[in-house]
Design a binder for these strands. Structure first.
Lengths: 114, 114
DNA sequence: TTGCAATATATAAGAATATTAAATATAATA
DNA sequence: TATTATATTTAATATTCTTATATATTGCAA
């Protein structure tokens, strides 16, 4: 698995994008979906995931709906009207970030300046 | 500029890859090179950069050479023998991470499961 | 039928890592 | 002369993640 170090800062964008395209989903399902999409390489720990979901809800970026399923509570999250523009920004930012990282990762041996 | 949030966890790999391909370089030059490569989108703040360089040196991943240039001290960093294998791992990890992020970012609207 | 894995959410303690700001100092340029 | 660029360092603070713990049900296998 990819070290959690790299995940820092991306978690919010990952959650929002998944919810935008495939929501409403509950926390556990988001986590499984990310694992599935990335071949198990990215795993969202619940200690990080749920606090992020709660924060996004408190910021009115996500809205929730509670349901009972087999006596277990499920909290379904989806994007609020306000949330959509936030997601577009976050996704755009991540695309630029990925492009930037690729320019560095694909560097070939160059001149040595010293 | 890209929010620092995303940078977390990537900084070390960025520094190591730059030094591998274009080192030896001093801290200030590393920062400028990253800015140049990413069109100003990634800026390494010195409060983050120098502590990382010091840490990598203390872990024997980087080695240093001090020089005087116009009465200013420059500390040139380069990769130690031990460092090369560390870099390969880090770069490979980042490649996989980028691939994983792309799978999420490129998601198209799908079935709504709820 | 007993125990384990999977499902489902929540939160506290701690570690790691970045930002911001402040300090220091010289050279080059306007 | 004042500002910008060069060059490094460190402390205080904020953020964000991991790990561990708690709770509780369902389904499957031994």
């Amino acid at each position: 698995m990819i070290s959690g170090e790299l995940l820092k800062g991306s978690l919010k964008t990952i959650v929002l994008k998944i919810l935008k395209e495939e929501g409403p989903l509950h926390g556990y399902a988001i986590s499984r979906r990310v694992e599935e999409l990335t071949g198990g390489r990215i795993r969202l720990t619940y200690g990080a995931l749920y606090p992020v979901l709660h924060k996004l809800e408190s910021e009115n970026i996500l809205i929730t709906r509670q349901e009972n399923f087999n006596n277990r509570t499920r909290v379904y999250y989806s994007i609020s009207p306000k949330g959509h523009s936030v997601i577009e920004e976050k996704v755009q930012e991540m695309k630029e970030y990925i492009e930037s990282l690729q320019k560095i990762i694909e560097l070939k041996p160059g001149l040595n300046y010293a």
